[in-house]
């Protein structure tokens, strides 16, 4: 398998053979197994939120933010589900990881699990594209090895969802045995599922997994771990990003016009060497035949609207 060639094919939305996916996933696993639960990343770095299979928007994202050949990236998870190109988006990120291991960190999102991908589209997409579920299984194996968080210059903590009542220190996250399907409760689950909200203390999440946490929990976590900021994704933000709690936490969302119908813009967050923040906002490009990064989207026959 030739990584550069595969990258080229993926960028054109071309079919990747089952064998290629297999060896790609195997190599990725070998690489990811050695990464820590919380990887250390240096500035400058660009933090990206949910992608959800919107491949042409992912390509726009790289365009607008310098590209992996030049810049460092952290992806906060939710690479798959909902969009038409979950497989291609995830494989492209894996290829980049293999090709530029130090320039890209992939964090696990709550959609990177067997259970959720069966409901939200990735499984169906693979069945549609390959007629069997093998490729889905290979990818799910890789999901189990993705890290749970990242820390930038020891000052900015990155995670997909948020905090957990079972976690006070980042060291406790380092101690989790992450190589498994995401459990239904406990620290690992919460990190991938929780949401910030205007609450006094830990509260029940409307999602049915994870918790809601408020300014108090955030301040305590920042203090205890001597950090300045939590960056996370997980929630659709119409403006692309949202800072909360006096700047102690930020949500970054990187899937513009989510599900091809929400009408939101997307953002990525660049952290400079002095830890200053720069947001880049981008919109969905109309997919067009043969223009730029454009890929012809499969027309969706799915019922998208209530008619």
């Amino acid at each position: 398998m030739n990584v550069d060639k595969t990258i080229l094919l993926l960028k054109q939305g071309k079919h990747i053979s089952e064998d290629t996916v297999y060896s790609l996933c195997l190599k990725a696993q070998e690489l990811l197994i050695n990464e820590a639960n919380v990887t250390h990343v240096d500035t400058p770095v660009t933090i990206c939120g949910d992608i959800h299979g919107q491949l042409h928007d992912l390509l726009t994202l790289f365009d607008k933010s310098g590209g992996v050949e030049k810049s460092r990236y952290i992806f906060l998870g939710d690479f798959v589900d909902r969009g038409f190109y979950s497989l291609e988006s995830f494989l492209l990120l894996l290829c980049y990881k293999l090709r530029y291991p130090d320039r890209i960190s992939l964090i696990r999102g709550n959609h990177e699990t067997r259970q959720i991908t069966k409901v939200y589209g990735f499984y169906d997409e693979v069945m549609r594209k390959y007629g069997n579920s093998n490729v889905w299984r290979y990818c799910c194996e890789v999901f189990d090895y993705l890290s749970l968080g990242a820390i930038i210059n020891n000052k900015i903590f990155c995670v997909h969802g948020g905090l957990s009542p079972d976690v006070d220190t980042i060291d406790e996250i380092r101690a989790i045995d992450r190589k498994q399907e995401v459990p239904h409760e406990g620290a690992m689950c919460d990190l991938l599922w929780s949401d910030p909200d205007e609450v006094e203390t830990w509260s029940l999440s409307p999602r049915g997994a994870g918790f809601l946490f408020g300014e108090n929990e955030v301040n305590k976590f920042l203090r205890t771990n001597d950090i300045e900021l939590i960056t996370r994704a997980h929630q659709l933000v119409m403006e692309g990003y949202k800072e909360m709690f006096n700047g102690g936490l930020v949500t970054v969302w990187s899937a513009p016009n989510y599900c091809y119908r929400c009408g939101n813009v997307a953002a990525v967050l660049r952290i400079e060497d002095d830890l200053s923040k720069n947001y880049t906002i981008f919109e969905a490009v109309q997919a067009q035949d043969g223009v730029g990064n454009a890929i012809i989207p499969t027309k969706k026959t799915q019922m998208d609207y209530f008619l």
């Binding site: 909902r82 709550n110 959609h111 959720i116 999602r207 929630q235 659709l236 929400c262 009408g263």
Partner: peptide, 10 residues
């Protein structure tokens, strides 16, 4: 499992 609560709201 309803994960997409923000989308539901939109």
């Amino acid at each position: 499992f309803l994960d997409e609560i923000e989308e539901l709201q939109v």
